[in-house]
Every structure is written in C-alpha cells, then in structure tokens.
Computed example of a mutant assay.
Amino acid sequence: MRLFTALLLFAFAANASAAIKTQEIPYESADGTKMIGYFAYDDAKSGIRPGVLVVHEWWGLNDYAKSRARQLAELGYSALAIDMYGEGKHTDHPNDAKAFMADALKNADAAKARFQAGLDLLKKQPQTDPSKIAAIGYCFGGKVVLDMARAGLPLAGVASFHGVLATQTPAQPGAIKAKILVEHGAADTLVPAESVAAFKSEMDNAKADYKLVIQPGAKHSFTSPDADKHKGHGLDVGYDKTADQKSWADLQAFFKEIFDVKPEGA
C-alpha cells in the first residue's frame, strides 16, 4: 500500500512538472539583432492568459532569468524571458557584463527596438492575451522596464527588482501609461539613496502610478540565489531569502491588481 501511494505521488509530481512547457524561440529586432527568447507556459491551463516579459540582469539571458519565466508560468501566466544582448549571450564575469550592458544601452532607440521585438513575440504566442501584458526586470533589466514605462509603452505594469533607477531622460507628465512597482534593497550601495530620491521626485513630477517598496537590510541582487558567488569579484551584492520572498509576494499582488484576474497558484 505504501509503495502504491508513493508511486501515485511520484506520478502526480511528474505530471505537475510536465505541465510547464518551455521552448527557445529565435527572433530579430528592427536593428537586425538576432535574439533568442525563452518562453514558458502551463500546458494544463486552457485558453489565453496575461503575458509577462522577463528582462535579465546585466549577466545576460542566463538560467536565473529563465527560472523566473518558469515560476511565472507556474502562476498561470504566459512568460517570455527576452534577450537584450543578442544571440542569448551571457557571462559570469562583471567586466564582460559591464561591456554587454554598456553596448545595449548606448542607443536608446535600439534598446527600445529590442524590447519591442520581445513584446511582439510574446503577444503572438497563442497562450497570451495581448491586451494584458506586463514586464519585470532585475538589475539592468529593472532599468530597461522602467525606461520602457518612461517611453510610454502600452504595458499594464512594470516591476523592477534591485534595478538601476537613474535615467538621462526623465519621464514627462502624463507620459507613463503603466503602473509601476519598484522593489529596492535598503542596503543597496550600487543604487544609493540619492538615486532613490531622484526616482521618487521624477515619478511624482510625471504623475506616475507607482509604488516603491524598500526591503530592510537587503543588498543589490537580493532576489538572486547566485548573488553571493559574485562577491569574489568585489561586488557589494548578496542574496536575501526574506526580501526575495516578500518581493515575489508583492509582485503577485501587483499582477492581481493590474490584470484584475487571479492566476492559478496565486
């Protein structure tokens, strides 16, 4: 009897895991950059559902960004981790990451085109409700999604986790259409208090609908379990399980608000 029960539990777990489908999808931006998207959805869920873009850290489209797409799929969303660097490239060395990020941000129009290409790809997926799209980003990706909101892209919402908040082109009053969630670590020395204050002033002046959540004691990269291994490169970063879990719960509440639906598993 125990063996039979164990087999049933194993089969149930296997089937639950198998319901999450993932695939790599090649696509191209208007500037000719060839990119690779990582798409995830729950195959056991019928019909269309809200879509979420995931924008990677400065490391590039690595396993962490892909894992977030899978987690979103488990919550009932259609999720696409997009590629802002091209060809799916990523790195573990900060010098390479800095160069990749600088290249991706040197031309604002090109960066917007790469994001737009990912947005278009997500909307085309048969599982996605194209009228309900949000974007989340981590570190570099946080800056990207905030910049897309500043540019007035028609997104239901954007969420930044330990993202870069500074900008050279502040949002103009009435320009931001998306609701905004920012999750920031109180001990983040890479995005100092001055940047946080400037961001709040910018959002207030732009009359944006935003929420800034400060996670006590959290450093930069507080959501990434791999953050601690980068301390060897002299980076003041660190994983914070409590802040990670709290910020993820905040995101789910944010999605419930902007999509006005309750996804499975939330």
Rank of each mutant, 00 (worst) to 15 (best):
A73L: 01
L3Q: 13
D96G: 05
G185E: 06
S67F: 02
G152I: 07
K106M: 14
R114S: 05
E183Y: 02
S67Y: 01
R2Q: 15
S247W: 02
R2S: 14
D109W: 08
I20N: 03
A14I: 06
P50T: 09
R70I: 12
T128I: 07
P26D: 10
G76E: 07
F161D: 01
D129Q: 01
A166W: 07
A108R: 15
L8H: 08
L7T: 13
I258V: 15
W59D: 03
L190G: 04
P26C: 11
G32I: 11
A65W: 01
D96A: 13
G174N: 12
A13P: 04
G37F: 02
A175M: 09
M84F: 08
V237G: 03
D120W: 12
Q245C: 04
S17R: 11
A243R: 00
P154W: 08
A73I: 04
K89R: 14
A73Q: 04
D120C: 02
A99Y: 05
A44V: 00
V237C: 10
A149K: 00
D250W: 04
K262A: 09
M35Y: 02
V52K: 04
L75S: 04
A266L: 14
W59T: 00
V237I: 15
Y64D: 01
L3A: 13
A166K: 08
Q172G: 09
S224P: 01
Y210N: 10
G232V: 14
K45M: 13
G137I: 01
L8I: 15
V55P: 02
F199L: 15
F115E: 02
D244A: 12
L75A: 04
M84G: 06
T242I: 14
A134V: 06
A149R: 02
P50K: 03
A186V: 03
A97N: 00
F115T: 01
F161T: 00
I176G: 05
G60I: 07
L251C: 09
L190I: 05
S160K: 03
D226M: 12
K219F: 05
P94S: 03
T189K: 13
A97D: 06
R49V: 14
A249L: 12
F222G: 00
G217K: 11
T33A: 09
P94L: 10
D147F: 10
E264Y: 08
A30R: 12
A197Y: 03
S221K: 00
I36A: 12
S46L: 12
R150I: 07
Q252S: 06
K229I: 01
D92R: 15
F161Y: 09
D83I: 06
A102L: 08
G47L: 07
I133G: 00
